[in-house]
Amino acid sequence: MVRVKVEVEETTVQGDFTEVDGLVVTCDKYGYQIEVGGIGNASAKAAGAKLRMDCPQGETNFYEVEEAMTSYVDPDL
């Protein structure tokens, strides 16, 4: 398993009934993006897990989402 850096950006994503605050997490290796609802660490970790499962190259990388989150989001969210 390879450690891969990611970029994390806040955005608005489509929720079940309306738009909600969320994150776009982008794999630095291939540019693949995942959107998730929520802006806290749990949402970022979920995006990292989804990147691992859905990698278009079939790789099972470890995505460094926690490191990327410390740059702009309150870790207690």
Rank of each mutant, 00 (worst) to 15 (best):
residue 52 R to M: 12
residue 65 V to G: 02
residue 74 D to N: 13
residue 23 L to Q: 00
residue 63 Y to F: 15
residue 50 K to L: 12
residue 72 Y to P: 01
residue 12 T to N: 01
residue 42 A to R: 11
residue 32 Y to A: 11
residue 7 E to Q: 07
residue 41 N to V: 14
residue 18 T to M: 13
residue 44 A to F: 00
residue 59 E to F: 05
residue 11 T to G: 00
residue 47 A to E: 12
residue 48 G to F: 11
residue 60 T to P: 01
residue 21 D to E: 08
residue 62 F to P: 13
residue 23 L to F: 05
residue 70 T to L: 15
residue 4 V to R: 09
residue 65 V to M: 03
residue 7 E to C: 07
residue 18 T to P: 02
residue 37 G to F: 04
residue 49 A to N: 13
residue 47 A to Y: 03
residue 77 L to D: 06
residue 11 T to V: 02
residue 35 E to N: 06
residue 53 M to P: 09
residue 16 D to A: 14
residue 46 A to L: 14
residue 68 A to Q: 04
residue 17 F to K: 10
residue 4 V to S: 06
residue 74 D to A: 04
residue 19 E to G: 10
residue 30 Y to S: 13
residue 75 P to G: 11
residue 33 Q to H: 10
residue 12 T to I: 01
residue 58 G to D: 05
residue 56 P to M: 09
residue 29 K to W: 09
residue 75 P to N: 08
residue 3 R to I: 05
residue 44 A to G: 09
residue 57 Q to G: 12
residue 36 V to C: 05
residue 25 V to N: 01
residue 46 A to I: 12
residue 1 M to D: 06
residue 66 E to W: 08
residue 20 V to E: 09
residue 59 E to I: 09
residue 64 E to T: 06
residue 24 V to G: 03
residue 68 A to T: 11
residue 50 K to N: 13
residue 70 T to S: 15
residue 57 Q to Y: 12
residue 25 V to A: 00
residue 43 S to E: 06
residue 70 T to Y: 08
residue 33 Q to E: 14
residue 19 E to L: 09
residue 30 Y to N: 08
residue 71 S to P: 02
residue 7 E to P: 01
residue 52 R to E: 12
residue 48 G to N: 08
residue 76 D to E: 15
residue 29 K to A: 11
residue 49 A to W: 03
residue 60 T to F: 13
residue 69 M to W: 09
residue 32 Y to P: 04
residue 42 A to N: 15
residue 40 G to R: 00
residue 56 P to A: 09
residue 14 Q to R: 10
residue 19 E to N: 15
residue 59 E to Q: 13
residue 19 E to V: 08
residue 65 V to F: 05
residue 62 F to M: 07
residue 58 G to T: 14
residue 30 Y to T: 10
residue 8 V to Y: 03
residue 34 I to M: 10
residue 61 N to T: 11
residue 65 V to Y: 04
residue 52 R to D: 07
residue 27 C to W: 02
residue 66 E to L: 11
residue 36 V to I: 13
residue 59 E to H: 08
residue 65 V to N: 02
residue 2 V to P: 09
residue 30 Y to D: 12
residue 47 A to W: 09
residue 18 T to W: 10
residue 17 F to Y: 10
residue 37 G to K: 05
residue 14 Q to G: 07
residue 43 S to Y: 02
residue 58 G to V: 10
residue 18 T to C: 06
residue 56 P to D: 14
residue 6 V to D: 01
residue 11 T to F: 03
residue 5 K to P: 10
residue 71 S to V: 13
residue 33 Q to A: 10
residue 59 E to G: 09
residue 31 G to I: 04
residue 32 Y to S: 00
